[in-house]
């Protein structure tokens, strides 16, 4: 009798524990949105998971970006998946790229845009009263919006220089239909973070940067 009571007690506790932990976890989530791609690189690469249920951990090596790389641009597309049961916003912050030499690679030399927001795997919450909004100036493909500035250097409509502190790049209404406790293959949205670097006569050296994408509760827009 005592054993049965103990068993039921443990069972109820476990169910409550699982329920308590799963519901909040689904509220806001960011993960890989698929396999990242790179084009125009010489000695470069990009690594990341093609599985949308894996965490977003991407490593980009643009490779050689001096004129030894004769391609017009090095372009990297990183799909990022989002899930939420409430309005959301996505922010990004950058660290690194502190080159004192102005002729070396700067944050403004890496074009950065947000493109192609779409339902994840063909399913996601479709809201009719609010839209998913890419914040200015990031709604562009840097590979097609690049221009040559008066000083001869390539400039972008938006670049990592536009990321100051934690900068909101995207916001909108609820993303997920289900309140699933586990990351689903097809219940949310995915967007492309596009990075472009044009090979130029930069001062020699190596440069690196780290970007952190964060999803949080956003403006309370209706669905």
């Amino acid at each position: 009798m005592k054993l049965r009571f103990l068993t039921y007690t443990l069972l109820v506790t476990a169910v409550l524990f699982a329920a308590e932990k799963t519901s909040p976890a689904q509220a806001l989530d960011i993960s890989s949105g698929g396999q990242p791609t790179i084009t125009g690189a010489v000695g470069g690469s990009v690594t990341g998971s093609s599985n949308v249920t894996n965490d977003l951990v991407v490593t980009i090596n643009f490779g050689e970006v001096s004129p030894l790389n004769t391609n017009a641009t090095v372009k990297v597309v990183v799909p990022i998946a989002l899930r939420s049961n409430q309005p959301y916003q996505v922010a990004v912050s950058v660290s690194g790229l502190g080159n004192a030499n102005t002729e070396a690679l700067q944050a403004s030399d890496i074009g950065f845009g947000v493109q192609n927001i779409r339902v994840l795997g063909g399913a996601g919450k479709v809201c009719t009263q609010s839209t998913h909004t890419v914040r200015s100036p990031f709604n562009n493909d840097p590979s097609s919006s690049a221009t040559v500035a008066a000083n001869g250097r390539v400039a972008y409509t938006s670049s990592l220089a536009n990321v100051t502190g934690s900068t909101i790049i995207l916001s909108g209404p609820q993303l997920s239909k289900n309140n699933s406790a586990i990351r689903q293959q097809s219940d949310g949205y995915v967007f492309d973070a596009v990075f472009v670097l044009t090979p130029q006569f930069f001062a020699t050296g190596t440069s690196s940067a780290t970007l952190i994408f964060t999803i949080a509760a956003g403006p309370n827009v209706p669905c």
Binding site: S32, D55, F62, G205, T210
Partner: peptide, 28 residues
């Protein structure tokens, strides 16, 4: 049940992209 609950901790509100580039000497 505990394993399922633990699996849900895999969800995250942050993701990381690290990047690097190289500029070699160039003359022509």
């Amino acid at each position: 049940l505990l394993l399922a609950a633990t699996a849900c901790f895999g969800q995250s509100t942050t993701g990381t992209v690290t990047m690097s580039a190289t500029v070699s000497k160039f003359v022509e």
